[in-house]
Design a binder for these strands. Structure first.
Lengths: 193, 193
DNA sequence: AGAAACACTTGATAAATGACAAGAAATTAC
DNA sequence: GTAATTTCTTGTCATTTATCAAGTGTTTCT
């Protein structure tokens, strides 16, 4: 199997020698999931870390009214993780679900731990992955707290335009923290501009 | 200087042998700041990591209208960091400011890096610190996207009751993503219940 | 002590968004 | 290919929250 995209992702985030990257990705295994499949279910413990090579997916939780609240939309290529569940071996709060057919690479916690403690570059990479994800989430909190729905929509449209061709508006709306009716109206308004 | 609280914080997050913790905190230095002082200014590069031993502080950004948006409220004891700025040596987006007199321990990036690469338990601790902070932020995004202001206020009141005695309502309001007038009305309403 | 700045509340009104329901359009299933 | 299901839009109306402005009380500064 061709690990070009996976290997390149490591390179792009932190400069690692080619041989070292290959050593790191040696224990990554390929698999695929069809559309609307479940990668990781709520209330289970995440035992693997996933690299999404191709496709779109999301994570969501159920609120008190049993409505699905989309917490994240993932666009390949990227790592997909419930960090707390994986590293602390806690049950997940969220469910991870494919939105299109998806291609993945996965590896287990044992392998991650072994690499983390023996390969300095992998340590740096791991930390950077967390730091970058933290920063993105922080930006999203700021946006949620200080921008109105229309601005958040326009930002998303600019940052991840392709999700609008691959993810239902209902899911995008719940990711933006609004109802699908409101998103529909916002789209109508902004398309005039 | 007494590093009891600092050392204990390491223990509480991840089980580390006493001697190892003392080795880790050896290069942490004590300092204090008065109320309304600036710990870390926007557009500078964070060169140190901070442990807040006592006091209250916040981070904030300026939005387009030059209004301060509080991004985080910190209650001792906890680590206070701009992760991206510190680990990637990028300029900060946020300003970190004391809200009361504060007591800190700090150490530089060189020391963190040295510990990270030589002390396995410190690596685990560092990752856990990031993971836990990521998870908290994630919970906040979910709350912002799915709960109304009154619910968010009541949750905050339950989780960090003491900030209401130590932080101005204006700052708490902007942390909740609402105006101070709205917070004032919510408090009036909920106090009747 | 007095002035200035700040924090908090409250009123009136407007804007943003949600709730619910119905219908059209697209997709999926058999 | 048709029925069933889901997605998206739109209308009406209710709720939530913002805006602006005024007034009171509190802190800070000199």
């Amino acid at each position: 199997m061709d690990k070009t995209i996976l290997n390149h992702y490591f390179h792009s985030l932190f400069p690692i020698e080619k041989g070292t990257v290959e050593k790191i990705t040696l224990a990554f295994h390929y698999f695929e999931l069809p559309k609307n499949a479940c990668l990781l279910e709520a209330n289970t413990i995440s035992t693997e870390t996933y690299f999404l090579e191709k496709g779109y997916m999301r994570s969501f939780i159920l609120n008190e009214e049993n409505e699905e609240v989309t917490t994240q939309i993932y666009v390949a290529p990227c790592f997909v993780n419930d960090f707390l569940s994986f590293f602390k071996q806690h049950p997940t709060k969220e469910t991870f679900q494919t939105l299109t057919n998806c291609k993945y690479w996965k590896t287990g916690l044992t392998n991650v731990q072994s690499n983390f403690h023996t390969i300095p570059e992998f340590r740096e990479f791991s930390r950077l992955l967390l730091v970058i994800n933290y920063d993105k989430l922080n930006d999203r909190v700021i946006e949620m707290a200080s921008q109105k729905a229309e601005t958040r929509y326009l930002n998303l449209l600019k940052q991840k335009p392709d999700i609008f061709q691959n993810v239902s508006l209902k899911i995008i709306a719940s990711y933006l923290g609004i109802t699908d009716s409101t998103l529909s109206r916002i789209r109508k308004e902004t398309s005039k501009m």
